[in-house]
């Protein structure tokens, strides 16, 4: 299982300089990966390029052993004319079972809202309902673009642990978030887009803690802090800022 971006260049307008120029990225095994960067640096664009929703003007995105790439994002909405539960029931892919759906509904804290219409839910519930339907699809790679942006921290940690351990061994999870701590803690590898340059030419790769329990292992807390610092420095290095 491998996905790689080879020297991809992309810009939204021909007159503007490229947003990405000859950018490379490679993920060659299943697991939890993250993309980090400050607002407006091009995270969602890169995610869409990887998902095949945008085409690079130069270069290629090559997939080996990956057929289904799904991308979900936080402003998605469920159809409003049916209840959340009814939509989720219909959305289960043939390979997933209703049992899986019930499990995710329960684990994502959606049991109390399945009879409600989507527009009546809180922002956090909306995020969770949206993610739940993606988790019952067949995918080899799931790109989550700030998909838990409105979810409270304890729930977010629980959901990330859940999807990491449920899918992390056979699928690629590509998580995009502004929360540097969860990115560092859960990820096997963090791809950082440096901010401040007009055109991004390189991603900075930093090893994450891959979900190792910081309380059980001695020194993990310090490693986590070091990783957070590295990621923040990498993200803002073009500004020359000292973190």
């Amino acid at each position: 299982m491998e996905i790689s971006a080879k020297d991809i260049s992309f810009g939204y307008e021909e007159t503007q300089p490229y947003l990405f120029n000859d950018l490379c990225l490679k993920i060659s095994s299943p697991g939890f990966y993250s993309l980090f960067g400050f607002s407006g640096c091009g995270k969602s664009t890169l995610a869409r390029l990887l998902a095949g929703l945008l085409k690079p003007q130069k270069g290629f995105v090559i997939k080996k052993g990956i057929t289904n790439v799904l991308l979900c994002y936080n402003t998605e909405r469920l159809p409003g004319w049916v209840s959340v539960g009814e939509h989720l029931d219909r959305a289960v892919s043939p390979k997933s079972s209703k049992k899986d759906l019930r499990y995710f509904i329960s684990e994502l804290g959606l049991s109390s809202v399945v009879d409600q219409k989507f527009f009546r839910l809180s922002m956090g519930q909306k995020n969770r309902a949206n993610l739940a339907r993606y988790l019952v699809q067949d995918f080899d790679m799931l790109i989550c673009d700030e998909v838990l942006a409105n979810v409270d921290e304890p729930s977010r940690n629980h959901i990330l642990s859940l999807i990491k351990y449920r899918f992390g061994h056979h699928a690629i999870l590509f998580y995009i978030s502004h929360n540097v701590e969860e990115v560092c803690f859960f990820s096997k590898k963090i791809f950082v887009i440096p901010t401040g340059k007009e055109t991004v030419e390189d991603l900075i790769e930093i090893d994450g803690l891959d979900g190792r329990d910081k309380k059980k292992e001695k020194g993990r807390q310090e490693i986590l802090h070091e990783t957070i610092l590295k990621v923040l420095k990498a993200a803002s290095y073009a500004y020359g800022q000292e973190i």
Binding site: C72, E76, L78, P79, W81, A91, S93, Y134, Q137
Partner: peptide
């Protein structure tokens, strides 16, 4: 886009679903 994206990604966006979404929205 915010409603249709899921259906498009999972290959479920037929004409009927597309029109229903657009009328409802």
């Amino acid at each position: 886009e915010d409603v249709e994206h899921f259906f498009r990604q999972t290959g479920r966006l037929d004409s009927r679903t597309e029109i229903t979404i657009r009328i409802f929205e």
